[in-house]
Design a protein around this nucleic acid. Structure first.
Length: 164
DNA sequence: CGTCTTTGACCAGCGC
DNA sequence: GCGCTGGTCAAAGACG
């Protein structure tokens, strides 16, 4: 996987409270409101808490972390490549087919020892050209490689704030 | 030879 | 209580 150089148009969603969906500023990105996996991608955090603890849940480590609602950031990107190289190294650890969606969802993890950042990539059934990338957690280490490409993406990224 | 992808099985939460 | 769905693990293979 090299630097996917394609025209991206990226939107950023914060957490899942923006169910109301955001107005679009772009002329091409339009999401079929609730059909945009309002449930699948940005919906409930539900098992996420378990998932977070799941890392140790297998071994039965009594961590006792309550429902830790970790922040998630969903990037909706118009691109034909699923893999957006953001400068970090990701390891794919799973792929699942999602109902209501033809395309499978891929799960990635940052390959850093102490970095538990996860991300998942899903393509919309409705729009094959749109890819939703959901980030989970924050990196606490420097980027491994310079990346002009990502800067390019960032420049096009539109960030929406829930209620600030 | 080391790293990463693939793939099926496993597990936990939720709805019925 | 059972079955479905989504999320993760782990072994083996592919690839440089």
């Amino acid at each position: 996987m090299l630097n996917p150089r394609a025209d991206h148009d990226t939107k950023l969603f914060l957490d899942g409270r923006m169910n109301g969906f955001v107005g679009q500023t772009s002329d091409q990105i339009e999401v079929p409101s609730r059909d945009l996996n309002g449930d699948s991608v940005l919906g409930h955090e539900k098992s996420l808490a378990a998932a977070g603890a799941g890392s140790e849940g297998k071994g039965g480590k009594s961590k006792g972390e309550k429902k830790v609602r970790k922040p998630r950031y969903a990037f909706q990107t118009r691109s034909h490549v699923d893999i957006l190289d953001d400068g970090y190294r990701w390891r794919k650890y799973g792929q699942k087919a999602v109902k209501n969606n033809k395309y499978p969802r891929s799960y990635y993890k940052c390959t850093h020892q102490e970095c538990n950042v996860k991300k998942q990539v899903q393509r919309l059934t409705k729009d094959e050209g749109i890819v939703v990338t959901t980030y989970e957690g924050m990196h606490s280490h420097p980027i491994e490689k310079s990346n002009d490409n990502f800067e390019h993406i960032l420049s096009q990224m539109q960030i929406y704030y829930p209620s600030f």
